[in-house]
Nucleic acid binder design. Structure first.
Length: 450
RNA sequence: GUGGUUUUAGCUCAGUUGGUUAGAGCGCCUGAUUGUGGUUCAGGAGGUCGCCGGUUCGAGCCCGGUAUUCCACCCCA
């Protein structure tokens, strides 16, 4: 048979792993400097843990695991599919890292010191239809902090986003908004009862024409006064800076206490950033930003890459009561998620990966014959003992072949050891980039390569 | 989930109205060079044309199904 992969899944070659690890290592290092600690959770959760947390659309995208054994015993198969599911499946693959984390926090609440800052990097699965940058198995790299409503953490996440993409060399825009602001806007235009519908349309504003936009709002039954006001509030470009726009919107939605509170939260966060000399050119207040996840209650984040046609590469926000669903109320959390696979695609398309990766061997020792082979094996052992990443050509072969091997594997040095070198107790080291060669004793060689 | 699209050599892609033995570039292998990679030159290997079925004297090409890729919608990292 011809082997294939399930739709939307991929293998990773050594080169790809090396590049993926470069991304993982970069993010991990930044999270650590902000005091986050790692945890892991199982690939599978109880289905009941996941359902209902991601909205109706999200529930459909959860991969269910069929019960083991005689799953059809005592099951009424005339039921509709959604009902039937709960009888034949009690486990599911994790859909994101946030909900399992909330479950973890609730289960371990007595051992956790709050506020609890954790990072987590694991694959998640979604039964979505794949596209470019959209996979059915992909990695998320999350950091969340639970147990504190402090807006300092929101400010930290801006810094973390900026630091990570600065280190990766990618230009990005960090868009942000606040769920309370969206509430305020719908209240201010007298459409609070149609919050979800209005916000869904607002979120699409960039993709549709103004005519369609107005049309859709009309269909919801909004008056033209309301629509005018909405347009003014959100999209008039009267203010140049985020600071100014926040003020403009604040007065426009002043009738809504919750909306004003949302604005003030964002102003507080910007205040922290200003105090820390944060370069605000990478962030952009976007009052039309409305991430779908039903659990966000405060700040909302989204990161878009410049120069690549791909969805958002990071997301996040504050959720005031996620653990409440598992019986632990009044624990505020805020978190962000890096879409590692999309970041990979961005760096790849923009040629931003470093030329040489740190995990390749630094030197290849040649293999010429029975006696030379022993000498070479001794040499490669000593190099490794000295902490130098070294490899030895496995069989006797023409020198050209061995150089070619080093060339293809991007090994920067070749240590040539033949009869001449052995007789003089030296190693002929060739620099594969410059082409230069020089003879060294083994001690000198170790010093040269260390 | 809805609509569309892609699939031909290891990779990127040509392939005429349905007609003999399916091509190119790159890569790969061998040699020129028995201790020197990248460049050059000469030669060579490599294809159930995604898969299953149908129409036809004859299918890479037409039809049906299916898988897969990508795109739009939806949603999202």
């Amino acid at each position: 048979m011809k082997p294939t992969l399930p739709k939307g899944t991929r293998d990773f070659s050594p080169l790809e792993m090396s590049r993926r690890n470069y991304i993982f290592d970069t993010i991990r290092a930044v999270f650590r400097t902000y005091g986050y600690q790692p945890i892991e959770t199982p690939a599978m959760e109880n289905l009941s843990t996941l359902t209902g947390k991601y909205g109706d659309e999200g529930d459909k995208l959860i991969f269910k695991v069929l019960n083991s054994g005689d799953f059809k015993k005592d099951v009424d198969f005339s039921l509709e599919a959604p009902k039937l599911t709960s009888f034949i499946s009690e486990k599911a693959l994790r859909y994101d890292l946030t909900v399992p984390f909330a479950r973890y926090v609730v289960m371990n609440r007595n051992d956790i010191t709050f506020p609890f800052k954790r990072y987590q990097v694991q694959p998640v699965w979604r039964a979505d239809r794949p596209q470019k940058g959209r996979y059915r198995e992909f990695y998320q790299f999350d950091a969340d902090v639970v147990g504190s409503p402090s807006l300092v953490y929101e400010a930290e996440f801006f810094q973390i986003f900026a630091k990570v993409f600065e280190q990766l060399g990618a230009k990005v825009t960090i868009k942000y908004n606040n769920r309370k602001v969206l509430n305020g806007i719908t209240e201010a235009i007298g459409a609070a009862d149609k919050f979800v519908e209005v916000v869904t349309i607002i979120d699409k504003y960039d993709k549709i024409t103004p005519e369609v936009f107005i049309n859709e709002l009309n269909n919801l039954g909004l008056s033209s006064e309301s629509i005018d006001k909405l347009n003014q509030i959100i999209f008039s470009k009267v203010a140049a800076t985020d600071k100014e726009r926040l003020e403009v919107i604040k007065s426009a939605i002043s009738v809504s206490p919750i909306g004003v509170k949302g604005i003030e939260e964002l102003q507080t966060v910007l205040g922290f950033l200003e105090a820390a000399n944060f370069d605000s050119s990478v962030i952009e207040f976007d009052p039309s930003l409305a991430r779908g996840l039903s659990y966000y209650t405060g700040a909302i984040f989204e990161v878009k890459a410049h120069g690549v046609q791909i969805g958002s590469i990071c997301g996040g926000g504050r959720y005031d009561d996620l653990t409440g669903l598992f019986g632990l109320p009044n624990v505020s959390g805020v978190g962000i998620s890096f879409g590692v696979d999309r970041i990979y695609d961005v760096l790849n398309e923009l040629n931003l990966f470093p030329e040489t990766m740190a995990d390749a061997a630094k030197v290849l020792v040649t293999n010429f014959g029975v006696e030379e082979e022993k000498f070479s094996f001794n040499l490669v052992t000593r190099l490794r003992a000295a902490g130098i990443n070294a490899d030895m050509y496995p069989t006797q072969a023409k020198l050209g072949k061995q150089f070619e091997y080093a060339d293809k594997k991007k090994i920067p040095f070749v240590a040539v050891v033949g009869a001449d070198e052995m007789a003089n107790n030296v190693v002929n080291l060739k620099d594969m980039v410059s082409g230069e060669q020089a003879k060294y004793s083994v001690e000198e060689l170790i010093g040269r390569l260390a």
